[in-house]
Structure formats: C-alpha cells, structure tokens
Amino acid sequence: MDDQTRLELEAAAFRRLQKHLMEDRTDVQNIDMMNLAGFCRNCLGRWYQEAAAERGIEMSKDEGREAFYGMPYADWKANYQTDSTPEQQSAFKESFAKNVENQTP
C-alpha cells in the first residue's frame, strides 16, 4: 500500500471514530471513556491540537476541542454531559494521572 492510500484510510477511520463518538454514541460519557480506555473526546481534541502544533499551526485547547467536537465544548457539555459520581471522579483522577499527566506528547 502506498503512503497516500494509507494516509487516506487513516483519515477515513478517524472520521468514522469521530462520527461514532459525536453522533452515534452521545450517551457515552467522557469520564467513562477515560476510566475504561485511558482517553476520551477531550484527548482526541488535544491530539488534534498537538498535530497542528507539530505542523506549525497555532491552535488553542478550545479550538482543538471544537475541531473534534464540531461545536464549542460548552455546547457539548450542556447537551450531553451528565454529572459524575464520586466513584467516577476517583477513577478519573487515577486514569488522568496515568494516561495524560505522565505522558509526553
């Protein structure tokens, strides 16, 4: 497979993941994704922002999130985010420390 085809397939898979998380499974909470998989929609927005920075494109955290969410993060939270339980918050602290704080981009 040539590099261009691989790149196009990777982009298509990313777009499908984005659609799945943003349209098909809005019921799945970010905190549950983070606790179970070690990443969430916010991580994907951050990775988008980091990829832009690697290419010399300035992008804020909010702009990266909006690029992934397809809307301002505040709108997503208002429409889809539910309150988390103390147990979810505790698990999140551990997962965030393991998967985000101790990671180098």
Rank of each mutant, 00 (worst) to 15 (best):
D75T: 11
D27Y: 07
F39K: 01
D24M: 00
A12P: 00
P86I: 06
Y69T: 12
E63V: 03
P72A: 06
K61E: 13
T5Y: 04
F96Y: 12
A91Y: 03
Y80D: 08
P86A: 06
E94C: 05
A53P: 05
Q29V: 00
N42S: 12
D32L: 12
M33I: 01
Q103W: 09
F96S: 12
E63R: 06
T85K: 03
S95T: 03
R41L: 03
R55D: 10
R55P: 04
A97D: 12
N79Y: 13
P86W: 07
T85W: 08
R55Q: 08
L9G: 00
R6N: 01
K77C: 14
F39I: 04
S95P: 04
W47T: 04
K61L: 15
P72H: 02
E66G: 14
I57H: 14
A37W: 14
P105F: 04
R65F: 13
E101T: 09
I57Q: 15
A67R: 12
R65T: 10
T82F: 11
A78F: 15
A13P: 01
G45M: 02
N102V: 06
R16V: 10
G64Q: 03
N42E: 08
M59Q: 05
Q88N: 01
E87L: 07
A97H: 11
A97E: 12
N42T: 10
E8Y: 00
S84G: 08
D24L: 02
Q4W: 08
M71A: 06
G56F: 06
A97S: 14
N30A: 11
Q81R: 11
Q4M: 13
R25V: 00
R41S: 02
R41E: 02
Q89F: 12
F96P: 04
E23G: 02
Q89E: 15
P86M: 05
G64H: 02
E63A: 09
V28S: 01
A12C: 01
R41D: 05
Q89L: 14
P105T: 07
H20R: 11
E50W: 09
G56A: 09
F14T: 09
K77G: 10
V28M: 08
N79V: 04
A51D: 08
K93G: 05
T85L: 07
W76R: 05
Q103I: 13
Y73W: 12
D3G: 09
V28C: 02
T85V: 04
D83W: 11
S90R: 15
T104S: 13
R55F: 05
E66M: 15
D83H: 14
D24G: 00
V28H: 04
A97L: 14
N35C: 04
M22H: 01
E23A: 07
D32K: 11
N102M: 14
E10S: 03
L36M: 08
G38W: 05
L21T: 04
E50I: 10
W76C: 06
E10Y: 11
E10I: 07
A12D: 06
E101D: 15
E54W: 09
R46C: 09
K93I: 10
G70Q: 09
Y69V: 09
R55K: 11
E101A: 11
M1V: 05
A53N: 15
D32V: 12
R6S: 03
K98A: 14
E66L: 15
K19N: 11
S95I: 02
E58V: 14
W47M: 15
S95K: 02
E101M: 14
N102E: 14
